[in-house]
């Protein structure tokens, strides 16, 4: 049987985007150390329900660290203390008996709090809609092996494509910037041969949409530290370069009015 922990929790509760929030203090006793962080919250919620208290709302789904739905600030760190790990994959054995754990939602102007620990991240979808795709209508594709892609290119593209869109980069950034998210999507598509025709249009549109919602980068590197997929800061540099190029290239494209 696994070891049991007794913890003191401070969990943020807030009824809506404009409601006043406050901390709920809970003594969470007998939490198995093999439980995941979210399972610990499940246990707390079941006990709250038994006491007729509405359970704490938090976003979660796959619990395998890939869907990107979950994510909270744990003691001032996005996704908690384990590097490269989403909240759902963080396990209680990383904590000690008697610890106090402060749990807060992501906070950024463009991530309004919906309820308790759940925030609205639709701004990320807006960024992708601005150009985070390759226009390849179904049926138009040539044979998959027609365009060889050097392994290194496919690998770096995949490194960037691993982003799960959880928003930890924004939550961890002192400026609430979404550069890591945006640059990862750009790098994924901009490095591939298939991504070239729309490269400059995509870069300009996505960066400017990002700036409509989020802050700017001051190169702290906190986003990378918080990222459950350890997306590289280098992608931000590539994006910066591509953006300024895009401003020039898009002007010089004859078809651009």
């Amino acid at each position: 049987m696994s070891k049991m922990l007794n913890l003191k929790l401070k969990i943020w509760r807030q009824n809506g985007p404009h409601a006043q929030g406050s901390f709920l203090e809970v003594d969470a006793h007998d939490i198995p150390e093999d439980a995941s962080f979210l399972e610990m919250l499940d246990v707390v919620n079941e006990r709250l329900i038994a006491d007729d208290v509405e359970p704490v709302t938090f976003g979660h789904d796959c619990r395998e660290g890939i869907c990107g739905t979950c994510g909270v600030m744990i003691n001032g760190q996005a996704h908690g203390p384990e590097k490269g790990t989403a909240t759902c994959q963080l396990h209680m054995r990383k904590f000690n008996d008697g610890d106090e754990i402060v749990i807060e939602p992501w906070q950024a102007t463009s991530f309004p709090i919906l309820k308790d620990l759940m925030v609205d991240r639709r701004a990320f979808d807006r960024i992708v809609e601005a150009g985070g795709y390759i226009s390849a209508p179904t049926g138009t594709a040539p044979d998959a092996n027609e365009i060889p892609i050097p392994k290194e290119v496919a690998d770096t593209s995949m490194d960037a494509a691993a982003c799960i869109g959880c928003g930890a980069c924004v939550a961890a950034c002192p400026n609430s910037a979404a550069q890591l998210f945006t640059s990862a999507k750009l790098h994924h598509l901009n490095t591939l041969p298939q991504g070239q025709p729309e490269r400059w249009k995509r870069t300009e549109a996505m960066v400017e949409t990002m700036e409509d919602f989020f802050g700017s980068c001051t190169n702290h590197g906190e986003c990378h530290e918080a990222c459950p997929k350890e997306i590289s800061l280098d992608f931000i540099a590539f994006m910066n370069k591509d953006y300024v190029k895009s401003k020039i290239k898009n002007r010089s494209l004859a078809s651009k009015r």
Binding site: K10, W12, F23, M73, N75, G76, Q77, V102, E104, Q107, A108, T109, S110, P174, N175, S176, A177, F213, F214, G215, H220, E222, E225, A226
Partner: peptide, 14 residues
Amino acid sequence: ARGRVRYDEPRQYL
């Protein structure tokens, strides 16, 4: 962009 609400728990800078 960061908004007026700040994290209650001091940020752990890494």
